[in-house]
Structure formats: C-alpha cells, structure tokens
Computed example of a mutant assay.
Amino acid sequence: METLITILIGVLVTVAVYLLLSRNLIRVILGSAILSHAIHLLIMTMGGLKKGDAPLLGENSNSYTDALPQALILTAIVISFAVTAFLLVLAYRIYKETGTDNLNELRGFNDE
C-alpha cells in the first residue's frame, strides 16, 4: 500500500512541477495546490499507515497509532486552502487590472 501511495506522490509532484512551469497564472496556482497535496500524502506515508487503537493510558492494546502526523496534515490542509483561496483572489484582481494572466506579459517581457 505504501508503494502505491509513493508512486501516486511521484505522479502528483510531476504534474505539479509541470503546472508550476507554465505561463498561465491559474495553472501556477493549481500546481502549488497539487504540490501541497502531494506533500500531505508524503507526510502521511512517512508517518506510517498503521492500524491500531488510540493511545490512551488505561487501555490494554498491543499497537497504537501516532496522531501527530494526522494533526500536522490537518493543520497544513487548512493553511494550504487559505493560501490557495488568497492566491485565486489575487489572480482575479490581477486579471481585472491588467486584462491578462500570462506571466511573461505581466513581467513586461516581449515574446521571443
């Protein structure tokens, strides 16, 4: 199972890098969102995909699951959602002001 998720992480990173290298501002924002999801999956996989009971002191159990990676990922999901929403609003404002979402035109470069 961890091998399959590792392959999925590689595919997501590949797609994210492809989108980040685009000239379109919306694609760059979507690439950063996909990259953040790939990192979330990476953290979850490195934390271990184990099954077990909650780590309570009074319980008699042989295996416990660590809740720290899940808590970190939940916090990271909320932060990445807020950053993505902010970037989408910023891209909309840039488009309304300049009339384009091409990054080369926004930088002032002429086409070669």
Rank of each mutant, 00 (worst) to 15 (best):
M1P: 08
T3C: 08
I5W: 00
T6K: 13
L8P: 05
L8Y: 06
L8M: 13
G10V: 14
V11K: 00
L12M: 15
T14M: 03
A16W: 03
V17R: 00
Y18V: 15
Y18H: 12
Y18M: 13
L19I: 05
L20E: 03
L21W: 02
L21Y: 01
S22N: 13
R23V: 09
N24G: 11
N24A: 10
N24D: 14
I26A: 02
R27T: 09
V28N: 01
I29M: 01
S32K: 02
A33M: 10
I34M: 09
L35V: 06
S36D: 03
H37F: 06
A38F: 00
H40L: 11
H40T: 12
H40N: 13
L41Q: 04
L41M: 11
L42K: 07
L42W: 05
L42E: 05
M44E: 04
M44G: 08
M46E: 09
G48V: 14
G48A: 03
L49R: 04
K50I: 13
K50F: 14
G52N: 10
A54V: 14
L56I: 15
G58S: 12
G58W: 12
G58P: 08
E59V: 15
N60F: 15
S61C: 07
N62K: 09
S63Q: 08
Y64A: 01
D66R: 07
A67S: 08
Q70N: 10
A71G: 13
I73L: 03
A76N: 05
A76E: 07
I79F: 08
I79M: 08
V83A: 05
T84Q: 01
A85M: 08
L88I: 14
A91D: 04
I94D: 00
Y95P: 02
K96H: 11
T98R: 02
G99F: 03
N102K: 03
L103P: 10
L103R: 12
N104T: 14
N104V: 12
N104D: 14
L106T: 09
G108S: 06
